[in-house]
Design a protein around this nucleic acid. Structure first.
Lengths: 235, 235
DNA sequence: GCCTTGGGTTAGTGACGATTAACTGGAATC
DNA sequence: GATTCCAGTTAATCGTCACTAACCCAAGGC
């Protein structure tokens, strides 16, 4: 995907006040399209959503989407690259903050002795990821269901970002499991993603027999399970 | 899907020697189609596979599939209902076996005191599910990616079977976590499925930096993590 | 040895859906 | 106030399938 020229006003501005003249209604539309895409793709899969559906869900109809994206695939690309960046950024932020707190508290005391604080980093990572998964289950679902529908470029971009995110986790795990290969640490991290990302499945549908588990409770439960899985001694 | 009349030959012989006259080449074809479907659907998604692709992968070409299934959706239905039945049957077998062993060993000694043996059942369930996920990652992947492409009937059939499988796990968990609601036990079980089913993702692609984790090692690691997550005290 | 069965095959057929073309109307610019 | 821009719109176009029709031809029962 080439690039949308988009005069100035590059990618930033999470706060979207009177920033560009007034044709930032465009940014709003674009975001509406991405939001609609998250919901529709999650519910029906990338291939199961037509551009007409997608446009309709965002209030415009049909090929208006081409004013914002190069094509259907580009919508998916923007969505998934966005999530991956958001996850990585969050992971780095959380890991840095806790790492820094650690360095402040107990300067350096030998390279391997900071398992205690790797624990703190892990707890923070788990809390972050659980919050993310519980607040945006649709995006989580799309990310590992429709990954293969991405263009080759977007696919490798997403893969790269995901890899870095996994490495943040693997880094935090390294102190806890010395002598374990990096590959195995990554498998461990990804298994925990699977655990946490199970929420779109389990919390999604109305269960028949029993009640639903409230989100706050699910957060605690998943965090506890994730930490247990992360800290379980290597076999 | 109704039933294949399949002349007589009801009760015996799972092994498929000279069982029906010779037009059991049909059964072979059918199975080949299902195998091909598992691989293709896993790799490209249900919507990304054409009937021509599917037929070609099974050695026939195109609409020959209609001699074996009512349509594309019916192939998916047969595949997923089959897996769900296989999982449930395996879960019941394993749970029964271990339950029986327990009853033999220590008759009855009060209703709640058998946590020890619920532990044994859980270990057996975990081992079973991990083996399944490692040996048939494609089917696992299809099951939670293309579930929504099922016909309404097949969808609810699969849902029913999955629900019963989850309940087998929840039953084994009940002794370990007394006072926990069934809904929460199900969430716990499904989270562990997510953990174990992460293998199609993590073991699937060729990693860049580090080596691969051998299957035997992955089995042990995932089992340990799953058990840790299952036995982690409720928050 | 006929004649039915049934799995296969190769040409349609009909939808559906992603793009693209041609046009419109209200801002933003000057 | 005229002109340019550009998000939108509606009406083609073009491919790609799922599925159906019309034929084959080996087997297997009689």
């Amino acid at each position: 995907m080439h690039e949308i020229p988009s005069p100035r006003s590059e990618a930033h501005s999470p706060r979207s006040e009177a920033h560009s003249p007034r044709s930032e209604a465009k940014a709003v539309r674009r975001q509406a399209l991405l939001d609609a895409a998250a919901g529709l793709f999650a519910a029906q899969g990338f291939a199961g959503v037509s551009l007409d559906d997608l446009g309709a869900a965002a209030g415009v109809s049909g090929p208006a989407i081409y004013r914002h994206f190069a094509g259907k695939q580009a919508v998916l690309g923007a969505l998934l690259v966005g999530v991956s960046e958001e996850l990585l950024a969050g992971g780095l932020r959380v890991a840095d903050a806790d790492q820094r707190a650690n360095d402040d508290g107990a300067a350096q005391r030998g390279a391997q002795g900071n398992a205690n604080d790797d624990g703190a980093v892990l707890r923070a990572l788990v809390a972050f990821h659980v919050d993310f998964a519980l607040s945006k289950p649709e995006v989580i679902r799309v990310q590992d269901r429709d990954f293969t529908s991405l263009s080759p470029d977007d696919r490798s971009a997403v893969r790269r970002l995901q890899r870095r995110y996994v490495d943040v986790w693997a880094g935090a795990l390294a102190g806890l499991h010395p002598g374990t290969t990096p590959a195995e640490l990554r498998v461990r991290a990804q298994a925990v993603f699977g655990l946490i990302n199970s929420t779109p499945h389990s919390v999604g549908g109305a269960q028949r027999g029993g009640g639903r588990v409230p989100a706050a409770r699910a957060r605690e439960l998943l965090s506890a399970m994730a930490l247990a899985a992360l800290t379980a001694p290597a076999p």
